[in-house]
Structures are given as C-alpha cells and as structure tokens.
Amino acid sequence: MTHDERERFLAAPRVGVLGVADPRGGARAPLVVPIWYGYEPRGEIVVEMGRETIKAQLLCAAGRFSLCVQDEQPPYRYVSVEGPVTSVEDPIDPAVRETLAQRYLAPEEARAYLAATADQLEQDIAFRMRPQRWRTADFASFAAEFAEVGAEPGRDGRTG
C-alpha cells in the first residue's frame, strides 16, 4: 500500500487487534486482544480500557504496543503499526470515549451505549501511540492475477 492508502485504511472503522508484551509467568508471548481504536491520518492511535485491566497494566509497563487491522473481505488487506505510548489520559476525556462509541456504533446505539456505561468514565483511561513501524499488505493485485489465470481456457484446474 502507498503511504496515503495505509493511512486511509487505518482511519476506517475496523476492529483492531492490540498486541503488547506480556512477561507474566515467563511465557514471553504477547497479550493479543481485539479493541476499538481511533485514528486520523498522520495522527496517533488512541485506545481506551479500564485502568485496572491487564491490558492497561501491561501497556504501562511496556510503554509501547502494536495494532493490526484487517479487511476480512477478499481481496484481503491489512495494516499493522507499532510504536511508543506517547501519553496516557487518566481519567479518559469523555469526548474521546464518545468519539470511539460513535465510530463503531450507529447514533442511537452510541447514545444508549454511553448512557449505559457512563460509570466507566471513572475507571477508563486512554493510551495514545504514534506509529513508528508500518507493515501492510494488499492482495488485490495477487487476486487479480489469480482470477486472470483461472479464467484462461484450460487453466481452470479442470480436465477433459
């Protein structure tokens, strides 16, 4: 993907998968969890979570995280970013929480969600991360080549 393509892709409302180092128990495997996130091109990633969660504790300790987002419809695409935590908002700004809810839910659902979870404002914090490393893939060209090969006479895998 080009720089602008990856920025637009990451800015679209997709569920991300957050990864953070998890040294508990010597496992050396990262904690990997789905998460809502916010992003504007050339900006920072923002994620929200409870202050006392394992995610938050690990993010504070590691000081960095990765986020991967994908398009689950063919042709498949993904963007993965990694970078340092640049700030922690504790407690979270209500506007950040509202923006995330509106990003992922229809207007009525967002209002209902925010009302039903208003008490979380006291427990939630937000982490911001500036992407340093980007990894991207867009399999559109591969899919087009594959489709062309399959469309050629005698090249569709059938015999006779």
Rank of each mutant, 00 (worst) to 15 (best):
V81E: 12
T86K: 06
V88T: 05
C68R: 09
E82W: 13
V81D: 09
E44W: 12
E52L: 07
D22G: 00
R24S: 08
P84D: 14
E72A: 15
D93G: 06
P91E: 01
C68W: 10
V33F: 13
V20T: 00
V33T: 09
D90Q: 05
Y39G: 10
I35H: 12
G38Q: 11
C68Q: 15
A27Q: 02
L58C: 00
P84F: 10
V33M: 12
R28Q: 01
A21T: 09
E52Q: 13
S66W: 00
P84R: 15
Y76W: 15
A62E: 04
E44Y: 12
Y76P: 10
I35F: 11
D71P: 12
G38H: 09
S87V: 13
P94W: 03
T53Y: 04
R28H: 00
C68T: 00
P23H: 09
V81P: 09
D71E: 15
L58F: 00
K55V: 04
D22I: 02
G83E: 06
P34G: 07
V32D: 02
V33G: 11
D93W: 03
I54W: 12
Y37A: 02
M49A: 05
P41N: 10
S87A: 15
E52G: 11
V81F: 07
P34K: 13
I54K: 14
S80W: 15
W36P: 01
